[in-house]
Nucleic acid binder design. Structure first.
Lengths: 182, 182
DNA sequence: ACATTAATGTAGCGAGCGCTACAAGATATA
DNA sequence: TATATCTTGTAGCGCTCGCTACATTAATGT
């Protein structure tokens, strides 16, 4: 008569996966407790049973999303280190892949909330951003150490700029900038 | 008849200036009708008397903000055209000026809303972004035309990337990338 | 078997949201 | 002065929000 549910820790992580799906698909602004609960197949009441309050729900969900993205990024790392220009082109192509679009949209949404001085999102943004920086640095072919650090920083700037422009519909500008040299 | 019309037009533009102040200071998310009305020294009731609905209020306000920023940008244009690298450094410094921070925060907030497929903010973002592109192109010293277009696009990418990183607290990364060469 | 705790449903509170109905003062026009 | 129109205040509607109180059922330990 009763459906057999997983144990509570499993249940919680099942819920979190549903929350991550929803947030990736619909964004934070569409993530009321009631909407999240429905996406996770539970009730708002139960979300607040498993989590202290909404900010804890969002924090845990963003963590899950970030973990997923790390997996995807490792999947798509180029087999060998590339010079900066080639790497930018490679990453620009990858980030416009449908698989990554939801992450990029969420990423921009987080940055937007960090932009007004929301301390929570500022910190989330900084942690993820520095993760990108480290990951990117490992992809760049450059011997000189000082120059290597500088190029990693430039890479991050350009990647974030590309994400930004794509989100406001200026994909053509991105192509103009990084398309194959004439 | 035209007299009373222009009086109410003045009142409307007074209100719009107050709205622009508020939106720049506190962002769109803190801009409920009641909060906006208070900032403009009127009531929510009157806002909906002068404007059809909230989206019209926001559209008109963003227009005012954009017009103000154009003025500031013209003030701060460098006296002569610069090569790309120098221009990026110049603009990065200018955009972190306290005068421009509110614009950049709002700009990122708009991009964040465009990132989920909000058609209104996507269009606002595209118009403003292309304005930036044109403005930036006029600042770049580069003879070859094809190269000039490409450099303008690169400039826009880097500027938006810098705005992005600044907003999530990665100012140091920006400095690493564009600081004076060692 | 019984007691305890864990898990979940139901219902709703208080606040804020965009927006509107209604009436009344202010002003212009006849 | 009388009337019509422009402008504004008061009040509140219907909704969603995060969150909670209370009750009940399911599982577990003794």
């Amino acid at each position: 008569m009763s459906i057999k549910f997983s144990k509570s820790a499993d249940r919680r992580s099942d819920i979190l996966n549903g929350l991550a799906d929803h947030v990736l698909a619909h964004g934070l602004i569409a993530s009321s407790l009631r909407a999240l609960a429905k996406a996770a197949g539970t009730s708002d009441r139960m979300l607040l049973y498993y989590f202290k309050d909404k900010s804890e729900i969002i924090a845990a969900t963003v963590e899950v999303v970030a973990a997923r993205m790390v997996l995807h990024m490792n999947d798509m790392a180029s087999p060998q280190r590339l010079p900066l220009d080639a790497l930018v082109r490679h990453l620009a192509a990858v980030l416009s892949d449908p698989l990554f679009r939801p992450y990029m949209r969420l990423w921009l949404e987080i940055a937007g909330m960090a932009a007004r001085d929301d301390p929570f999102y500022t910190q989330v943004g900084e942690v993820i951003g520095r993760g990108f920086l480290t990951w990117g640095a490992a992809q760049i072919a450059e011997e000189n150490e000082g120059q290597h650090i500088r190029e990693a920083a430039k890479l991050l700037i350009m990647i974030e700029g590309i994400v930004f422009l794509n989100s406001i519909g200026l994909n053509d500008v991105v192509q103009t900038a990084i398309g194959n040299p004439a």
